[in-house]
Design a protein around this nucleic acid. Structure first.
Length: 568
RNA sequence: GGCCCCAUCGUCUAGCCUGGUCCAGGACACCAGGUUUUCAUCCUGGUAACGCGGGUUCAAAUCCCGCUGGGGUCACCA
């Protein structure tokens, strides 16, 4: 049977949110399947009973769905009208904890054929030997002592209920991994040891489960991070022992922080700790964290605060924590398309030119799905460059139509910034769209651009320098113009950006001054500062009443200022 | 420490397989100009790299060896 359909899989373990590195692996896995007209399968590796949780499974599925990395087979889920997953080939279930029988069947077969054997050492014994090996500066290898226990004794001890693990007997031949990215990698038999395939608790280890599942689920191509390269000979050994075919392998280079350290959740904790120290904050600013806990956390490098506490703390300190997980990027206001584009490019190069001769860098999921191949994947590790990602995100936002931008911004604020969703309707955001699109790199940045509109008219604080430059300098010419302008704007019928803009132009001409001479005083009067979006949009979003109120307040403010300085 | 992987501008990379077209191209960042009512956008230009040392060759970023450096891994985690 020449069934050559490509099946790739992504197999996260549900022990937290989806890490950005995992997202990249999933994306390229997906791309490899799509580019070959195949299927992308999702499997949940929950054999670690201690650390796995339902909640993080849901979180990971949602992270993938949000990114648009849709899985053809796997756990079923509805997301924004799409149905993901399913089991058309009947290869499920897709949760490893539900597949124990399958693993046990394979393990039994291996034992019966003498390719695996039980071992009775206690974890502590092995740990001691391991420490010795490290002290002696050599690699640790299991000494195979359980292999010499006679068959009848083994059976007797198992029957007596003695705790044991099962180890695979590794072959004496070298094993070569034919990697699609790195080429052939051969590991000599001296490097192997008889690793554990079933734990004391009866659950298979990762190595056995992953190998059996990939074979039974018909996976033809395994795409994963390079940290697994050393594991691959073990998996090949299991395949050979069980008579399974070896799939294609592709090990992706790893992603690091700018400083070369591993990107990890702990980075967020580190950042918060440093900020607290820098601020010389000694008492917890959050009621949920007691003083004892706070002090302990601050003292102990290894102690971490839970994610939501960290976020609160970041809010109090007015700092931004580094984004590490997909959810972090989502809440920071990154767009899936920009994130996918950047992630794909981090390690993969389409090797295609644009019409103007520059390299193709901006592309969508369709392009990836149509053109991905391992040929363009580099073999060296890369550093995650948030600045470039930010640039991609900004470009993506700027390229959105006003309507599309208003919609994503509104949807985002419903989830992440209620201050905006409560103050502005989607229609308001549409008015703001042209002003905000080119001024923010993330949706979260949008708030900074329209901050002036989020405060009450009476809370506008006037920046001294700006007031001086725009209103007081040149014998108060700015102030005079502002007063004149106030009377005319108050009677403007159509309070839209275009109409306001036209009116300002007209006003400048009839008073024989440049645009800046009137725009800046008005801008300072309504926003308190010299910087804001185009005047039409700035005034339109505030509304006529607000504009008039703010101008009056400003005139009063300047009046008080000049009086007091005259007297003083 | 053993084993494995990797090595081009600050960062991501093209070029390397099939040596010459490369005094090394693009992107982000940075710097300088320009457009603009402010800011942003946008436009133009600029700075900036083949880790080191040996070979092979008429010729090496490209092939070979060594060194150095970075990373991974050495769990009853995945």
């Amino acid at each position: 049977m020449a069934n050559t359909e490509t099946i790739t899989r992504f197999a996260p373990s549900p022990t937290g949110h989806l890490h950005i590195g995992g997202a990249r692996t999933a994306l390229l896995c997906w791309a490899q399947a799509k580019a070959n007209g195949g299927k992308f399968l999702l499997r949940i590796e929950d054999t670690d009973q201690q650390r796995s949780s339902q909640a993080s499974t849901r979180g990971i599925l949602e992270d993938l769905a949000w990114l648009g990395i849709d899985w053809d087979e796997g756990p079923e889920m509805e997301f924004e009208g799409r149905t993901l997953g399913g089991d058309p080939r009947d290869v499920g279930p897709f949760y490893q904890a539900q597949r124990l029988e399958l693993y046990n069947k394979s393990i039994r077969q291996l034992i019966e054929e003498g390719k695996a054997y039980p071992a009775f050492e206690k974890p502590e014994e092995l740990e001691a030997k391991r420490k010795e090996a490290i002290a002696a500066k050599t690699g640790y290898k299991y000494d195979r002592s359980a292999l010499s226990i006679p068959l009848d004794e083994r059976i007797a001890r198992i029957d007596a209920g003695e705790d044991h693990v099962v180890r695979l007997r590794m072959p004496d031949e070298p094993i070569t991994v034919h990697d699609q990215i790195l080429g052939d990698v051969t590991v000599k038999p001296e490097e192997f040891d008889d690793f554990i395939i079933r734990k004391r608790d009866g659950f298979p280890t990762y190595h056995l489960a992953v190998t059996v599942d990939d074979a039974l689920m018909g996976v033809t191509c395994v795409v994963r991070g390079q940290e697994h390269l050393i594991n691959t000979p073990r998996h090949i050994a299991i395949q050979q022992a069980l008579g399974f075919a070896t799939p294609e392998y592709a090990h992706l280079p790893l992603i690091f922080n700018q400083d070369g350290s591993k990107m990890s959740k702990r980075d967020k904790d580190k950042t918060a700790k440093k900020a607290v120290r820098d601020a010389k904050m000694e008492h917890s600013p959050i009621s949920e964290i007691g003083h004892e806990d706070f002090a302990g956390w601050l003292r102990d490098k290894t102690r971490q605060l839970p994610a939501d506490r960290l976020n609160e703390l970041a809010g109090v300190l007015a700092i931004e924590l580094p984004e590490i997980e997909v959810e972090d990027f989502r809440s920071a206001g990154y767009l899936p398309s920009a994130l996918n584009n950047y992630l794909a490019l981090l390690g993969w190069n389409p090797k295609t030119k644009n019409e103007d001769g520059t390299d193709l860098e901006h592309f969508g999921m369709d392009y990836l799905a149509g053109n991905f191949s391992f040929r363009g994947v580099g073999s060296s590790p890369s550093k995650f460059d948030r600045v470039k990602l930010l640039s991609f995100n900004g470009d993506t936002i700027a390229a959105l139509s006003d309507e599309a931008f208003a919609k994503v911004w509104h949807d985002w604020s419903l989830r992440h910034d209620h201050g905006i969703s409560e103050r502005f309707s989607e229609t308001d955001l549409l008015t703001l769209a042209p002003a905000v699109k080119t001024r923010c790199k993330t949706l979260r940045d949008g708030r900074k651009v329209i901050g002036f509109a989020l405060i009450h008219d009476c809370d506008v604080e006037f920046d001294g320098k700006s007031v001086h430059k725009a209103l007081i300098k040149s014998d108060g010419k700015g102030l005079e113009l502002l007063k004149l302008f106030r009377d005319q704007i108050g009677s403007l019928e159509d309070f839209t950006p275009d109409a306001i803009e036209a009116m300002v132009k007209c006003f400048a001409e009839s008073n024989e001054v440049g645009m800046g001479k009137i725009a800046q005083p008005v801008r300072v009067a309504v926003t308190g500062a010299a910087v804001s979006p185009a005047l039409g949009q700035t005034l339109a979003i505030l509304g006529r009443d607000s504009v008039v109120t703010r101008i009056d307040r400003c005139v009063e403010h300047v009046g008080a200022m000049t009086n007091s300085s005259n007297e003083g």
